[in-house]
């Protein structure tokens, strides 16, 4: 695979006495969308949090664009160029939409042109710019969470289940936004349980089971091979 932006090698992570990641290894190609698929509890979110530095890997190596991330804090990993959208969105509900966005802009006030672009992708953010983020609907909070990660250009985006629990119309908005981000050449690692979304966005796919990557390859290969899907995940994309 040419020029990966992120490479995990035998990464192991424990949470308390539980061994969650048991030697995860994969690469994320530059400028592509890589999907992490798998059932609940197989280590997808732990993988994202470990890459971000919110949980520390006890073994293995995480290389980001040639730099070993292991000694860096979450803050340093963000400043190195990683944007993160957590599974629970991580919205500061006591702050306004504007304050949430301002906080994410590390190099000063948010760039006006980039904000305009984000407003075209997520119109509600402009409408409720001065409103408390706590008063947004679930879908709007997810839009804010993704827009916040995108308020400044990052070299890699880690996005954890952005469509979880959202209405179909909002899922479409999310897919449109992530397509736009992909079109601009962003590298994205995306955890997704919605296989239709995975098929619509993914260039490559990783399937995880029991704290390991059990398969990796082109998304097109996985999405057309129902036998492979059933073998890896116990279900078929054809059914979704």
């Amino acid at each position: 695979m040419p020029d990966p932006i992120l490479r995990l090698t035998d990464v192991a992570t424990d949470i308390a006495q539980y061994h969650i990641l048991k030697g995860v290894g994969f690469e994320v190609p530059r400028g592509q969308v890589t999907m992490i698929l798998g059932r609940n509890g197989v280590g997808k979110t732990t993988t994202m949090r470990t890459i971000m530095g919110l949980w520390r890997n006890k073994a293995g190596r995480i290389d980001f664009d040639g730099t070993d991330l292991s000694p860096l804090s979450a803050a340093e990993r963000c400043r190195a160029g990683i944007g993160y959208v957590p599974e629970d969105m991580g919205i500061f509900t006591d702050l306004t939409v504007a304050e949430n966005m301002t906080l994410a802009a590390l190099s000063g006030p948010p760039d006006a042109a980039r904000l305009d672009w984000l407003f075209t992708v997520f119109p509600p953010l402009k409408t409720f710019w001065s409103s408390s983020a706590g008063n947004l609907s679930g879908g709007q909070k997810q839009m804010l969470s993704i827009a916040r990660a995108m308020v400044e250009e990052r070299r890699l985006y880690l996005i954890d289940e952005p469509t979880k629990g959202l209405a179909p119309a909002i899922v479409s908005t999310m897919v449109g936004a992530l397509r736009e981000l992909k079109r601009q050449g962003a590298s994205i690692l995306l955890v997704e349980q919605n296989f239709a979304v995975a098929r619509a966005l993914g260039d490559r796919a990783l399937v995880m089971d029991d704290g390991r990557v059990t398969w990796s390859g082109a998304m097109s290969e996985l999405s057309t091979d129902t036998g492979l899907q059933e073998r890896l995940m116990g279900l078929s994309l054809e059914a979704t």
């Binding site: 963000c78 991580g90 304050e99 906080l103």
Partner: peptide, 24 residues
């Protein structure tokens, strides 16, 4: 102020403030 914003956000969710690039 930006530092005030970081403090208010940190009171609510310190982990996310770290993930946004601030050494809390």
């Amino acid at each position: 102020t930006k530092i005030g914003l970081i403090v208010r956000a940190g009171v609510q969710n310190d982990e996310m403030v770290e993930a946004l690039g601030y050494r809390l």
